[in-house]
Design a protein around this nucleic acid. Structure first.
Lengths: 359, 359
DNA sequence: TAAATTTATGGAAGCCCTTCCAGAAAGAAA
DNA sequence: TTTCTTTCTGGAAGGGCTTCCATAAATTTA
């Protein structure tokens, strides 16, 4: 070996260095670091002492090669969205810490790139498992992964061949609508995203169920859906536009609206302010998602248990990595209601209405 | 070798499989995959054909071991904050894609945990380089990394021994203040975070410079700083409290305030609303950071070029990985002004004031 | 005390690559 | 033709670990 100084003179100690200094064989050192039971206490201590003094850390790549496991997982997340993921990742990482596992991050910049990303990064068997967020798993990969039994957990998306977890959108919408009903509202509308998208569809269902159970007829005029294809209408602009339609109803406007996302709700609020209307005095609003913005704007909303979802996903992935033959499961998470100031009991507006609401 | 089926029967092809089928040596296969020039065209084609047909991908861990490089970098980010990082990471990843490098993510959950996190995760992961975000690098690690010449780039924080990049806070504050001045404001205040923190200090400097250059005297009553230690006073609550102090000034209140962060500005706005004051009619507000919230609340603010910073950081890290002896550099990024609706020319409030402001 | 267990240990082989050296093949020069 | 170059190629060694087999040491049992 030539004298070329690697890493500028500093060469991390290897298992051989430890073995030599501790006067044991490499196998013993390895066993110590893998908590193998058949090492005597005296030896274990001696090895650890030497190892600590040299600041030895097993080389994860060498480990990975020998063990045929990488001890790391890949999170494929859409970078075109934001906060939701950070919070889930937080949960993921906490769990991964327990499992002594590293997190590789791949951010997909554009939905069309999912496929090439997967090909480039995942196939190289650099990771033991994959967390796949919020995007449809391309068919080619779904097939390949299923066949190779690559451990994959889908979050906020679904495919029958893999473990998946989603939020019970319909139940969340039910909660939101019920909240408005229990505040005493009768004229309740829904401002929805593009109904083509699954969450929008499910949230409508929940709205309908709550209304039906309360025996409040649903006025078709009060159910507005976005036709936007941009992010399926889950945008501020979409909320703004549809709220203007509600406002155009004048005195026929609902007294409360369930909006299918906080981001739309923020647009809706802007439209209200612009029209000189106040929330909740003139109209109550409930959103969905509990993004950070919602707390700042004081929007009553539906919270998805993101940290828990992250931890669960990581845990499930670990189980699957230990047993490749588990049947795919699907776990629903129950969202919860977060009450803020955008929702309140309906205010009586005129004498005529007063009579009615005195009951 | 026993018959235990690895990975459920599927064993990824190795360089030996390719070599055998292509009737070449393993060295040749390796050379093909490393674009080594001394492979004849015919051979290269043959190898690639076999490799493709078997869907061969070099094993990154074996590569890492043999090359003594891992081709991955670690991002240590504080998970107790949010959006800023995602945007920077986006820039980082884009660059890393070019460099064929992977991104490992480590989120620190609490500032106090930085040290143990680094010890646990960084030392063992043997990544080629580290991007360290927004936190002070603990002295022990700084020393060790400097000594080992571990490639480290600091983002939004500083240490003389490493490459670092920060935003010119002082210039941003200057821009913000200047904006208010050029709108015609004379009674301009600053709502600052905890002055102990570097950014707060720098932002104050920029404020002062702008005021001095415009020859507007700074009224000490108009410069309020948080004494909170929680996140150095960069919180919504801190902004809320200090704004109440401003409001208590009554008619002596400034007509415009530069707030040292958007998050504080959101609190300040809440205090204003609560007091029945309007922004910008009664008072103009300029924030700092351009977090997502700012756009929703319509806060005029100072934007940091996050994606660019990310890409730059990754590039710089790559350079350093190629030459461990580069002297540390420090790069300043220039922020820019984003005008929204929270800032407007001062409105004349009363006859008495009219006299004054007619000047 | 000898034999049979049990417990602890050393180290070779193997994980999948890269890299280097030696040598084969093909051309060029003599 | 022979000799020297140049261009390609094969494969051993090595990177740092885990694991398994063999063996040594300590205990137990007969």
């Amino acid at each position: 070996m030539e004298a070329l100084p690697e890493r500028n003179g500093y060469l991390p100690p290897t298992i051989y260095d430890i073995a030599k200094r501790a006067k044991v064989g490499i196998g013993t050192v390895s066993r110590v670091f893998n908590n193998h039971p058949s090492v005597s206490d005296a030896t274990r201590k001696r090895v650890l002492k030497v190892a600590n003094s040299l600041n030895y850390q097993p080389h994860p790549y060498a480990r990975g090669l020998a063990r045929k496991r990488t001890n790391s997982i890949l999170a494929v997340i859409p970078f075109f969205t934001t906060f939701f993921f950070l919070e889930i990742l937080q949960g993921v990482q906490e769990k991964l810490g327990e499992l002594d596992c590293d997190l590789l991050l791949y951010g997909v910049h554009h939905p069309d790139h999912v496929e090439s990303s997967l090909r480039q990064n995942v196939l190289r068997s650099r990771v033991d498992g994959i967390l796949f967020f919020s995007m449809a798993m391309p068919a080619a990969f779904a097939k390949q992964y299923a066949q190779m039994k690559t451990p994959v957990v889908l979050i906020d998306t679904y495919n029958k061949d893999f473990d998946s977890l989603t939020v019970e959108n319909s139940f969340g919408a039910f909660l939101a609508t019920n909240h408005l009903i229990s505040l005493g509202h009768k004229r309740i509308g829904m401002l929805n995203a593009n109904i083509e998208s699954l969450p929008a569809h499910q949230r409508l269902k929940g709205f309908q169920r709550a209304m039906n159970e309360a025996e409040i007829p649903i006025d078709p005029l009060y159910v507005k859906k976005s036709s936007s294809t941009k992010l399926d209408g889950f945008t501020r602009e979409a909320g703004y536009e549809l709220m203007k339609e509600f406002i155009a109803l004048g005195s026929e406007m609902p007294t409360a609206i369930f909006v299918s996302s906080d981001i739309q709700a923020s647009g809706a609020l802007a439209a209200l302010t612009e029209a000189g209307l106040r929330c909740p005095e003139d109209i109550s609003i409930v959103g969905f998602d509990d993004i950070e913005l919602a707390s700042h704007l004081g929007i009553t909303t539906i919270r998805q248990p993101m940290a828990e979802m992250g931890a669960f996903a990581a845990g499930r992935l670990a189980e699957r990595m230990n047993n490749l033959n588990l049947p795919p499961t699907h776990k629903m998470f129950m969202p919860s209601l977060v009450v803020r100031k955008s929702s309140a009991p309906p205010v009586v507006r005129s004498v005529k209405q007063k009579k009615v609401s005195l009951v």
